[in-house]
Amino acid sequence: MVEHRPILNIVTHLVLILGILIVALPIWITFVAATHDEARMLQAPLPLLPGPYFIENFKKTLFGSGLSGTETAPVWRMLMNSLFMAIMIAVGKIAISLLSAFAIVYFKFPFRMGFFWLIFITLMLPVEVRILPTYEVVADLGMLNSYWGLSIPLIASATATFMFRQVFLTIPDEMLESARIDGAKPMRFFFDILLPLSRTNIAALFVILFIYGWNQYLWPLLITTETDMTTIVMSIKQMLEAAEQSPQWNIIMMTALLAMIPPVFVVIGMQKMFVKGLTETDK
């Protein structure tokens, strides 16, 4: 910093630590709840320090059939569903966006701007506002209770297309010119030059889209009616409802913990890339 101010420095750290405590409090409480047994979780006040049942709860939650008294898929199954959905959405979005951005930046063809605007419009139609008719389309196509139905309607997005477009525009024109003199045809240029040059952006976007996919809630809630297809994020709500009859907060909170670990892990593990991707994508 510009000048030396020991008191301000102490205040700085205090504020930041306080902020972290507030941000982390709900997660700490979740974690604590997941380390006690069912009985302890029914006595007020609830504990603020971890108990000894973490491993037991972990096993019970991951491989058991969830809450007793409700019919849910085992948690590992739901985790797999979430994983499939998140990966399909992320990979799908990246693939179709790369291709369309490539077409729009590197080709001159009829209706180019028309296609561009068509893609742009999707920016204005979040799934929440067109939920019913989209549901009908998916139902008519027989895609209810399938991974396709879960992911495909969510993979068209203008954001990713625009980001790749931006990335491609910053790649010097000479790359293409040089590749053309070297004899590269369009698709070869795409795979040999464009993809490797966009590698970091692809990775950053993957992080963001993985989280976006993993955290989908309303859409899977409508599309999946079979317990085998439920995602982990959805199951929390079902458990909360069940909790009104038989509260098993240790299991519910363990499930919540399991549901947030993969995306949190991805964000923290790929923090640098993710921050870069986020702040540069949305701008």
Partner: peptide, 26 residues
């Protein structure tokens, strides 16, 4: 023909060898 560009237009993700070999490979 072969062209040398002002900013060289070397493929940044390829080694020198790969850069030189790319046109031949194609």
């Amino acid at each position: 023909i072969a062209m040398v560009f002002q900013n060289y237009a070397l493929y940044p993700h390829m080694s020198v060898r790969e850069n030189m070999a790319y046109g031949l490979k194609l």
